[in-house]
Design a protein around this nucleic acid. Structure first.
Lengths: 338, 338
DNA sequence: GCGTGGCCGGAAAGCGCTTTCCAGTGCTGC
DNA sequence: GCAGCACTGGAAAGCGCTTTCCGGCCACGC
């Protein structure tokens, strides 16, 4: 139990070389070490089962091999897809990802950033959606500043933050294109299941959708707001039904919300798409296989995670970069002609 | 840019106390510090925006605040639910979780453990399923030993590993109960979409299912193996259909596989449950809302993650503990009477 | 009144590594 | 043949923190 860990010093002693030499061999510094010694060190390290102490390295080098990833809820396919992209890139780069979940509490985001800063994470990907809550936003901005000042890089997914690299999906454009496509199906009365109004993602998608309807000369939609979750979609759909709206097509600003909404419609005996067409946004994998398959705006989620990780790890230029990824309207069985 | 980080020494100097005192105030050691000094330190720390360097702390204390979590694919709801449970508990305990993904490559598991060991993670939760590949298993066992010898704790979910705490779902019992329930629906010919034969989870569920059929006096099922993924289920289902089996009910050893299987059946015009009943295992949240809703064996996935994290973080007794969690058969619309 | 604890502050010795600086060696070039 | 250089190995100074140990102080007991 607790057999003391093998240290570099032991390896060095065992191999009959200095600490410096052992260090140089085992981490590939710029300095050369003769093949002879080098091999001896390698061999003893192997024999002793030496594993470098990452904390000590981080301390000595003043930089760790940690990359932070902050999401609201890892259970949500939107986030888990992004997480998959981020981890893939990080692991390829030999880094380790630290997963933080906020549970959608804005203050947690700042807390996590602070923790990550304590760990001297070299970068962090913020995948949460931006809130418009002033205080939380200021606190977060301060943490981001502190983090970058300390030499770390920050990238955001789908929420531009001052001075950070960002991957922004075409929320507005996607919403707009979707609206036109749906209007093209002949629908005249639309409803939108919007997210909480303080989320810019939700607002952008909604704004785009409205613009698209306007393009098509269709009346503005009824909007019902709900939480950005499956249950939020469920509740919002019930509320919509209760309102006796005459909508024939409903747009949920998120696939996950659409999922909840479909459950609500089904429970109330509203057939999709016969009685009501429904579309979402994101194209999370699970909803491609459902019946009816969900019409949506496809976002390359894993790729977005990869891009974000790439931005944040590529040694970093100074100015903030923004990468836009386009959404692609995919009409499936959940939307019908009207 | 890179404004040097505030260190404890600066706080101490600024507050006019020694390093020791500052440290004692800011981390709550066993030693008391007079209210006067204490407050002064706290205040300066606050003013300067001091954040302790986690690497330095880890080094000095010889223990970090990292908890590892190893999964195959964070995108898979099974794993993301477990991950949610683990992160919740870890974050409550003030720890930080490091997410490692294996992409189902057995050797990655050992690699990740080694990395985690380098970081002196204080514990790790292994949520991957055990392989029967001898070499990989030995390598993994060695890493687990090394990890525990170094003072870290290891817990496994659903795979007993020598000397580790384990959370084991009732795979066999669940499979058995499900088989009986399905037989009770009147089905006589069964098929099973099994996972890769080297996964004990898959084998246990299958074995339980067979036992349950035997209990009910029903003939053994046709078994088709596929990968433990949505696509694996899809392929296996196609293979099953091609085999012209007369099965009226199929059990996919995993909900995710069932999802793929349902897609395959649908494509081939096989109606569920009219032409074919189908059941899964796990009860991942997304499949409760689909049409038809999937019959399955419910496992409290998030709770399993919480339990695993709890086991591994509770200061640890010496002998390995095992917590069993029962699966509960839930029949929904995807299975019909025959 | 003085010895004996109990407390609290501070000095300093690490924790395991990286990296700078210095010393020694063998070459090259004239 | 020797100055100068490139190159390699080692000693040692940190990195930012924790913790042991020591010294000073006060309160107490006899």
């Amino acid at each position: 139990m607790s057999a003391r860990q093998v240290t570099l010093a032991e390896v060095a002693r065992q191999a009959g070389v200095s600490l410096a030499t052992a260090s140089r061999v085992l981490n590939g510094s710029t300095r050369q070490v003769s093949g002879d010694l080098s091999e001896r060190v390698l061999r003893t390290a192997e024999e002793l089962g030496y594993v470098p102490n990452a904390s000590a390295q981080a301390l000595a080098r003043n930089s760790s091999s940690l990359v932070g990833l902050v999401v609201h809820d890892i259970t949500d396919p939107y986030f888990s897809c992004i997480a998959a992209g981020v981890t893939r890139v990080a692991e390829e780069a030999g880094l380790v990802v630290v997963l933080g979940t906020t549970g959608r509490r804005p203050e947690r985001e700042a807390e996590l950033l602070s923790t990550l800063r304590a760990h001297r994470a070299r970068a962090v990907v913020l995948a949460g959606s931006r809130t418009t809550d002033r205080a939380a936003q200021a606190r977060l901005a301060a943490e981001i500043d502190a983090f970058t000042e300390q030499g770390g890089r920050v990238a955001c997914v789908s929420q531009a933050k001052l001075g950070t690299d960002t991957v922004v999906p075409g929320n507005r454009a996607g919403g707009r294109a979707l609206a036109r496509a749906l209007a093209g199906l002949g629908h005249k009365k639309f409803a939108v299941l919007g997210g909480p109004s303080e989320l810019v993602v939700a607002r952008d998608r909604l704004a785009g959708f409205k613009a698209g309807l306007a393009d098509a000369g269709v009346a503005p939609p009824v909007v019902v707001n709900g939480a950005f979750t499956r249950d939020g979609g469920y509740e919002a759909a019930l509320e919509l039904l209760a309102s006796k709206s005459r909508a024939t097509c409903v747009f949920a600003v998120t696939d996950v919300m659409a999922m909840g909404a479909m459950a609500a419609l089904r429970e109330r005996g509203v057939r999709v798409p016969e009685d009501m067409s429904i579309a979402g946004f994101d194209d999370i994998p699970t909803l491609r296989d459902t019946v009816p398959a969900l019409s949506t705006v496809r976002l390359p989620l894993e790729e977005m995670g990869e891009i974000a990780a790439g931005l944040v790890l590529d040694g970093g230029r100074d100015e903030a970069r923004t990468v836009r990824v386009a959404g692609e309207v995919v009409l499936r069985a959940s939307t019908a002609h009207n």
